[in-house]
Write a protein that binds this DNA or RNA. Structure first.
Length: 313
DNA sequence: TTCCGACAGTGGGGTCGCAAT
DNA sequence: ATTGCGACCCCACTATCGGAA
């Protein structure tokens, strides 16, 4: 039995046009993990680190009569039944979750979606579809279903607040540790208009210029008023030229104090430059965090057609 | 010669552990 | 006791460079 196995990776992209050759799986928002079951159970992460003591729930898995290697995702579900990476973060540094009482407060589940080894045979060369059939035939496992490659499936994941889907080529082999276009992750991307409230200086090749932009938007308060709320910062998505231009635009707007309605966390405010909230831009992001920040924000560009006061959450 | 894929580098949200203060 | 920092986890994106076409 090979050990450890580095998981195969997906390239980002759009739904494939030759849909008949693909199946869709839900993109689980958790931590990738390979599970090895023979006389004992072991669990490893993306780079082969041993996760076995960290997720004892997985060690309870049983596949009677078989020796297997599974590829899948460790997931924590929130009260709405949606995968929550934020919840999972409380578990992922803890090697002895039982001692912290976390097994009860933040339980995790394992979502197996591929079978890499079965009873002496490594299945890398077998097509995805065949591996899936073998996986679904194993008693004792709850295997999340896959779906036909149909835009309606992606839309359904959007409606349910899920991260997206992974399109997998039916006839493709498994390539450990390799990012291949046989797997395409298609993410549900959201956009938000934002007001630039400041910036943080860059490092390295961005030394002397902008590193990231501090973002804000107006949020309604009970009583009819609105506050200028911090919603995170964005440091990717712009070209060097766009960054230079923003620097030129922001310098004349600089003011000595923050214009956000509430003080920012100290580690963010430290070293920040503040500007009058006059420039509007647009960012792409994957979801809102508990702290009402943008997760995985990317800069899309200025929106000179928009008025700051109209930028609302 | 041109193009493309892999990689390095910069940036984000977040948690925790540990050393420095 | 508090703070700062890096290590993990997830990640997006641009610039660069060498090899493929």
């Amino acid at each position: 039995m090979p050990y450890p196995v580095e998981p195969m990776l997906a390239v980002p992209g759009d739904l494939p046009v030759d849909a008949a050759h693909y199946a869709l799986e839900v993109k689980w928002d958790g931590i990738r993990a390979i599970v090895y079951i023979d006389d004992t159970i072991r669990v490893t992460g993306r780079r082969g680190t041993d996760f076995t003591p960290r997720y004892p729930e997985i060690s309870a898995l049983r596949v009677p009569g078989h020796r297997v290697i599974l590829d899948g995702e460790v997931v924590a579900f929130d009260q709405h039944g949606r995968p929550s990476f934020e919840l999972l973060q409380r578990r992922m540094h803890i090697t002895d979750p039982g001692a912290h009482g976390l097994l009860a407060t933040v339980p995790v589940a394992y979502m197996p979606f591929d079978l890499l080894y079965l009873d002496g045979e490594t299945l890398y060369h077998r097509p995805y579809q065949a591996r899936r059939e073998l996986l679904e035939g194993l008693a004792g496992l709850t295997v999340p279903p896959n779906f036909p490659c149909d835009p309606a499936v992606l839309d359904a994941t959007y409606q349910q607040g899920l991260e997206g889907v992974v399109a997998k080529r039916l006839d493709s082999p498994y390539r450990p540790g390799v990012r291949t276009p046989w797997w395409i992750k298609v993410k549900n991307l959201h956009t938000q208009e934002v007001v630039i409230g400041g910036w943080r200086p860059g490092k390295g090749r961005r030394e002397g210029g902008i590193g990231s932009l501090l973002l804000g938007a107006y949020a309604d308060l009970p009583g009819g008023a609105a506050e200028f709320a911090f919603v995170g910062h964005v440091g990717t998505g712009f070209t060097d030229a766009a960054l230079d231009r923003l620097y030129q635009l922001l310098r004349p707007l600089e003011v000595p104090r923050s214009t956000y309605s509430r003080p920012l966390p100290r580690d963010i405010a430290r070293g920040a430059h503040w500007v009058r909230p006059e420039l509007v831009g647009e960012v792409g992001f994957t979801m809102w965090t508990e702290e009402r920040r943008l997760r995985h924000p990317t800069w899309r560009g200025l929106r000179p057609d928009k008025i700051p006061a109209e930028v609302r959450l």
